[in-house]
Design a binder for these strands. Sequence first.
RNA 1: GGUCCUGUAGUUCAAUGGAUAGAACAAGUGUUUCCUAAACACUAGAUCCGGGUUCGAUUCCCGGCGGGACUACCA
Length: 597
Amino acid sequence: MNLESTMQSVVAQYAKILYNVDIEANQIQIQKTKREFEGDITVVVFPFAKLARKAPEVAANEIGEYFLEHNPIVSAFNVIKGFLNLSINTSFWLETLECIHANQSFGHAYIEEDAVTMMIEYSSPNTNKPLHLGHVRNNLLGFSIAEIQKANGWKVVKTNIVNDRGIHICKSMLAWKLFGNGETPASSGMKGDHLVGKYYVVFDKEYKAEIKELMTHDLTEEEAKKKAPLILKAQEMLLAWENNDAEVRQLWETMNGWVYAGFDETYKQMGVDFDKIYYESQTYLTGKSEVERGVAEKVFYQRDDSSVWADLTPDGLDEKLLLRADGTSVYMTQDIGTAKLRYNDFEIKKMVYVVGNEQNYHFQVLSILLDKLGYAWGKDLVHFSYGMVELPEGKMKSREGTVVDADDLMAEMINTARETSMELGKLDNCTPDEIETIARMVGLGALKYFILKVDPRKNMTFNPKESIDFNGNTGPFIQYTHARIKSVLRKATDLGIDYKAEIDKELQISEKEVYLIQLLSEFPAIIKQSGEEFSPALIANYEYELVKEFNQFYHEFSILKEENEALKHFRLVLSESIAKVIKTGMGLLGIEVPERM
RNA sequence: GGUCCUGUAGUUCAAUGGAUAGAACAAGUGUUUCCUAAACACUAGAUCCGGGUUCGAUUCCCGGCGGGACUACCA
């Protein structure tokens, strides 16, 4: 029970006593008092002043008086318009801090044995090219919301559906076969996914050349695209794949193997992982049988050309194709198949798909289809939809080669972090290993924080330079603050200061310190809200506010030099609690915080 | 055309229907006997337009205008 909800029910109770007004506790608005006013928390009186037919000021004053008489944690109050500002007893805040300090897993809900399962799908790459900036946003969001839901008491299964079959991978395979000269990751020294991606580009280049050549022979562009020998060969290869042609399958497995090794490295570097990976090659047939079941149950219908459709016009949408006339499956069919496999593998109560907003329509449809097929979680599946990431230079376009590769980006961030730190002489006393660890934490922290602090729905601009700035609302700034607090605590330990003992409840502390404790006490509510709204940004912005507040405090007050032992002790406890909340909060964003930097 | 998302300082981002719309970057001015100056303080600057609901609107509703995505027998 936190202060806010306690206050809500108390105020509701008082309203009943004073005015005989019935109001739900959660209808009472409680907020933190703004800085420029006296007090700690504020009751917004307007709503029930109206019900009580009292002028807001009058009602606010009466409730304030009642508080003073009957509730010892309120030490003073003032009224401005319809806002009742209450000051809370210092001893209440001191007790609150002690609880926070003592609670090892502060902010985390305990996961019960019988907790329900939420499955979160994210990443979902194609196997014909390396991961790029768009995947970075996807992976970071997916991993972070999984962590947040765990903190909120869900059992979470992180999953990835790999699009390992289709014409795209055949293009890479074909180009490698024709132009590759047997090149392998080992022989070329290239990462596997990059090597395969290279041949995807080769295919595209040669294919375009063929189209151009054909167009000089009086073919339109459309015709040329369809008749170019390379595309015909690629389609042939896809067919051979579907028919289990041994040689094609062998090549497919080899090249996908290279790609997976490459992806693993990228995921590892990014710090994301999965509990269960599905492969499209294993799920697409299941989808077909599910669709056939739908036809049998008359949820879907078959046309004369034997293609299968779902009529979604009653839902205000179009008709949607599910199986082609030749019986092959489309994207939607695969998602249905994957859903069935997952349903069999886990007891899923909630399904979350982290997929870009260009697929909003697709998931609207999928939700309806799964519901019609009888999946309990179909109706309210969450499409966690996010916007595009752009660079300051403009949009990414694969054709113009302006795609930002995930591996390159991470390497660049780490390099910048290392260079900046070296320049500032911050790592002078570190071993090469320590330097690498810190550079990695800071570089990746900058990237992650910058991306996660933004509302996912919005398209955003990723500015590498700005993200790694050590000032402002950035990851490194928060990491740095954590390291500083840890440094103070180390020194305190060296000086033999004991800050595990109880805090003196009679201590006089400043408004700023009360504000910091109040901020800390809101942390669990922030995590809860982040979980409900699937919003890592909420946590990121909270972290920044906390750190900024602490920095001001830190400059205003000395900690170790304080003469008053009780006060010194209190400030150390406060600092340690803040460090704990920073670490926990950043952990929910998938960001590591260094002990020193 | 239809559907969905979005519009806040020069820029990048905030703001459960609440008080004088917050930060950061960029610009300008300061602060180092100091626990990490990779810090802190100060100055200047914004809700696309028009209606409506409300004691009160950046937020909710309606209508414009601008940006993006989707609207494939591609995935």
